[in-house]
Design a protein around this nucleic acid. Structure first.
Lengths: 259, 259
DNA sequence: CCACCGAAACCTATCAGATAAGTTTATTCG
DNA sequence: CGAATAAACTTATCTGATAGGTTTCGGTGG
């Protein structure tokens, strides 16, 4: 126990972490900074820094004038990890896609076992959105906007699946992956066209998966998802190869931490 | 743009996040607090809090007397999410197991495709450790210690697999899941015995997976892993049912953030 | 010339005391 | 009773200061 040298902030962080994970439930409020400072016999500043650490870890929500509240866990802290892991690194994106593959297949599998009416409706709705957007992409309107919407519904489809899988953690993880994957989606579309595919192909693939899910065929759903993602990987690769300087630049990191 | 009301700390956090994710590479050092304070026109205290947030997110390493250094991303921040998601909640553990299933199967699949001599050696070594520990568990020595070692090598086996899969992200994620999963491992062993199984069964399952990996049979490896984990889930369920009050209490949250 | 030592310069950790600006609560007035 | 207001509480941020690590660099002796 050489805890004497442990910095004061770390001590408070550890204590508060135990408190949050152990006794408090999401939505509960921490004591005031002053009270905590007295409790742990440190200055208010030290408490403040500890609380900031916890907010960075996604365990606390902070707001001016209000006490710190215990946060409902979501995947946002996971998103930071992903963003960091992929910076300056094409390999990171491929790794990410492989992870996504695993989770999406699991998502489809579980979904087929547990699908409910409401879940099916949500998926169907996303699917409809994709159909509409695809039609508009062929039309004369604003093509870029339609494309954007297509991606939107594509992501929405996968999120609806994760939600309907009944596994909240899976949902959080896939949601967190959505942001970094946006880039990949754009690449994917580009590669898609490069390889002579159309948005309709994507829709068809999604329909196949959904069909298996509604039939309660978990193995078939997994298989359909697997081949869908295999295509996606090929598209991304094609797009990457087509423009070797993979057009870095994404900017706008502003994660909204306070809803 | 109502950014005027954005708190100073958040502004600095956003700026530093962009800096870290955009321009700096792991190991690089941030400017001194004083310099950052001057740059962003805030007090040193504000910079300090921002830096704490980033350290909480796992993007920075802090140490007294030394400048903040950009951290190599690992799954540690992910671990917090898991811990938070599982607090007070048996459902959380089942969710986690399902996620783990997905990742482990992917791990085995990729492993079979990319296995190297070194990777195989690492896996074999973990396997050997399990065999030894299992033998000791039957012997007359300290049974609890041997059990502990058995778990250790069990975890090591799965980590070796993830490592050999060549997907670093996968490895990080599984590693982060290992800690929360310790509980499940203990439960698993208990359930294992409840259901009339022996550690040797676990070893046999691991050997089957490894055998398929070495044969380069990704589908077979996935299948073997799948059935292995299916067993594990059953064991956990059995253990959970056996002792309905699921023996909460785990304590000791002290995550070591600074190597 | 080089390896080792110590002081100086730098830097972070933490404390104390203050002001500003939201939030919540209690009080008072219509 | 209900709404407006004031009081109390709480967080956000600043200034200034001290303590205790790190790094750096000049010197000193081998």
């Amino acid at each position: 126990m050489q805890n004497e040298t442990l910095p004061a902030v770390e001590r408070v962080v550890a204590a508060l972490t135990d408190l949050i994970l152990g006794e408090l439930t999401p939505g509960a409020q921490l004591p005031s900074e002053a009270a905590l400072a007295a409790t742990y016999d440190v200055s208010r500043l030290t408490v403040r820094e500890a609380v900031r650490v916890l907010s960075g870890r996604g365990l606390l929500d902070l707001a001016r004038g209000r006490r710190a509240t215990v946060r409902e866990p979501d995947g946002s802290s996971f998103g930071d990890f992903l963003a960091a892991a992929m910076r300056h690194d094409a390999k990171g994106m491929l790794d990410l896609i492989e992870v996504r593959q695993a989770l999406e297949i699991q998502s489809a599998t579980l979904c087929a076992k547990r699908i409910t009416r409401a879940g099916a409706a949500a998926i169907e709705s996303a699917l409809d959105g994709m159909r509409t957007a695809a039609a508009e992409m062929r039309g004369s309107g604003d093509r870029a906007a339609a494309e954007e919407r297509f991606h939107q519904f594509d992501v929405g489809y996968h999120e609806a699946l994760a939600l309907a899988s009944g596994n909240r953690m899976l949902g959080h993880l896939l949601e967190a992956m959505a942001a970094p994957l946006r880039d990949s989606f754009h690449l994917s579309l580009r590669g898609h066209e490069l390889r002579g595919h159309t948005p309709e192909d994507t829709i068809a693939a999604h329909e196949r998966i959904f069909e298996r899910i509604q039939a309660g065929d978990s193995r078939g759903a997994a298989q359909a998802m697997r081949s869908h993602l295999r295509e996606a990987v090929r598209d991304v690769s094609a797009a990457l190869n087509a423009r070797l300087p993979p057009a870095r630049r994404s900017g706008a990191r502003s994660r909204a931490r306070r809803a």
